[in-house]
């Protein structure tokens, strides 16, 4: 029982990180129909900012907002430079563009920073643990769960109460009509990228705080997982992305913890098999987007 609870905490921590990443992918996809595979490189950028801040002796308290600022800014810049010129192209063109952006950034990291994994200095407190009712919980896990909850509440408030948040929902449903209302396409799309960059930054800090290192390809695996999570939840649906992220986190952690040792080698195929089963039962994902048919841009 104790092991189960322990693993549940782990699942929430990992699932939360996937959820934030999947949400970042979904925000952009719902607005402009782009699956941004360079999302992972936004994570890597935030990771490197943490690393350099550590080297420069900047306190972690300041390093975190700097890292978030960097990934947010990088996301907006990415849209401006790479995705705006292909905005009205087919989904395939935009997808390939995002692969190109990802690869260019990876090569830049490898050549300008290092091919190898670099250590990131983290505050001592993060590697500690606290005991709650007999459960020993790592501080980094707890921070991950709390950060995820805060981000989800923040995003929900923004999208339901703020004028620009409502405009983003309107644009996600029917971009052309949103423009007729006077909602500027450039503003909404830049806003979507800024949010996705912020979410990638938070996810990066949580990811790095479990590993204490950063490498040029760091973003690839988590974003691939987040992509699976977004599809599992229903591509383009924000609630779906969160649900898919948590479900994928739970599947991975529980399989790693409770699968018999003889089957551990097959953990990933079994996990993805479960994903396929869910999609066979719900082909549009757990919580599909309301308006998959609506025209983009």
């Amino acid at each position: 029982m104790e092991l189960f609870l322990q693993q549940t905490v782990n699942a929430f921590a990992l699932g939360g990180t996937y959820a934030l990443l999947a949400l970042g992918l979904a925000v952009v996809f719902s607005i402009m129909g782009l699956i941004n595979f360079a999302h992972g490189e936004l994570m890597t950028i935030a990771g490197y900012v943490l690393m350099y801040c550590g080297l420069a002796g900047i306190s972690f308290v300041f390093a975190v907002p700097l890292a978030l600022l960097a990934s947010t800014f990088a996301a907006v810049l990415m849209e401006r430079i790479a995705f705006r010129p292909v905005r009205n192209s087919s989904g395939a063109t935009m997808l390939v563009t995002s692969f190109a952006v990802a690869m260019i950034l990876q090569v830049l990291f490898q050549n300008l920073i290092s091919v190898r994994s670099q250590p990131v200095l983290l505050p001592e407190a993060l590697s500690g643990s606290i005991t709650i009712g007999g459960l020993v919980i790592g501080v980094n896990k707890l921070v991950a769960i709390i950060s995820t909850v805060i981000m989800l509440i923040f995003l929900d408030r923004f999208l339901s109460k703020q004028k620009y948040g409502i405009a983003m929902r309107a644009a996600a449903e029917d971009f052309a009509v949103a423009r007729l209302m006077g909602i500027r396409a450039n503003t909404v799309i830049a806003g979507a990228f800024a949010i996705s960059g912020l979410l990638a930054g938070v996810a990066a800090i949580l990811w790095v705080s479990q590993r204490a290192s950063v490498d040029p390809l760091m973003g690839f695996t988590p974003v691939l997982k987040a992509f699976i999570a977004a599809i599992l939840g229903g591509l383009g649906s924000l609630r779906g992305a969160v649900a898919g992220g948590f479900l994928l986190g739970f599947i991975e952690i529980y399989l790693a913890a409770f699968l018999p040792p003889a089957l551990q080698e097959f953990r990933d195929p079994i996990g993805l098999g479960i994903v396929v089963l869910v999609l066979l039962m719900r082909p549009n994902g757990l919580l599909p987007a309301a308006s998959l048919k609506a025209e983009k841009v």
Binding site: R169, D174, R179, L180
Partner: peptide, 23 residues
């Protein structure tokens, strides 16, 4: 650009109504 029109004093109510159903 379509987003400039409301500011000038013209709006289009599109064919098929196209209200934002999830709002």
């Amino acid at each position: 650009r379509p987003e400039m029109l409301p500011g000038l004093g013209m709006t289009l109510s599109p064919e098929g109504r196209r209200v934002f159903g999830t709002l």
